[in-house]
Amino acid sequence: MLVENDIVERARAGDAQAFNEIVQAYRRRIFGTVSRLIGRPEDVEDVAQEVFIRLYYSLDQLRSPEVFEPWLYRLTVNAALDYLRKRRKRKQEARVADLSEQQVMMADAAAGSKLEVERREKARVREFVDTLLAGVSEEDRILLTLKEVEGLSLKELEKIYRVNENALKVRLFRARQRVLRAYAARREEEARKGTSDERRESESGA
């Protein structure tokens, strides 16, 4: 835990200073999680604030300070899901992949320093994995991200989702298999593209 139990207790009792301490302690972690769950850096701050607002209004429902972290993760997952649902409704919004492409193009236009190359590579990875994760439902995408990217254990996920470990394992397995199939398909597609490009090049050379 990043804060002591008594700070959580004080915040529960309505101490604004204690609440501030909690926000300061968890701000970066929540930013990171939200960033990975929603995939849009420009909306991370807004969703993170939503998480803390929900925390402020639901602290009195917290059974004990020991379950504070799973509780906070649960609020984060719910806020991310609500954001993703709202975003799905807004048709005019650009797709994650399109936005990443824009970012890649912007990075291309920038100077080709080593830092830029690194940044471009990261943007490419993000775009690629986001495309793979787009093949599963938002709920499964979040679950998979928490497990595989955030590195949460099954025990932690059990506390967050309040379902038994076996149910989680089945859900995770299915989601991972779907992503794996999407990955295999992408690789096959790229290999086919690579072969046809090579053939075209050899034909033009001849």
Binding site: R27, R28, F31, G32, V34, S35, R36, G39, P41, V44, E45, A48, E121, K122, A123, V125, R126, F128, V129, L132, E148, V149, E150, G151, Y183
Partner: peptide, 14 residues
């Protein structure tokens, strides 16, 4: 790939 994704997803500064 997922490990690389974790590194690639840098959280913006508050």
């Amino acid at each position: 790939l997922l490990a690389a994704y974790r590194d690639a997803c840098e959280a913006p500064e508050p």
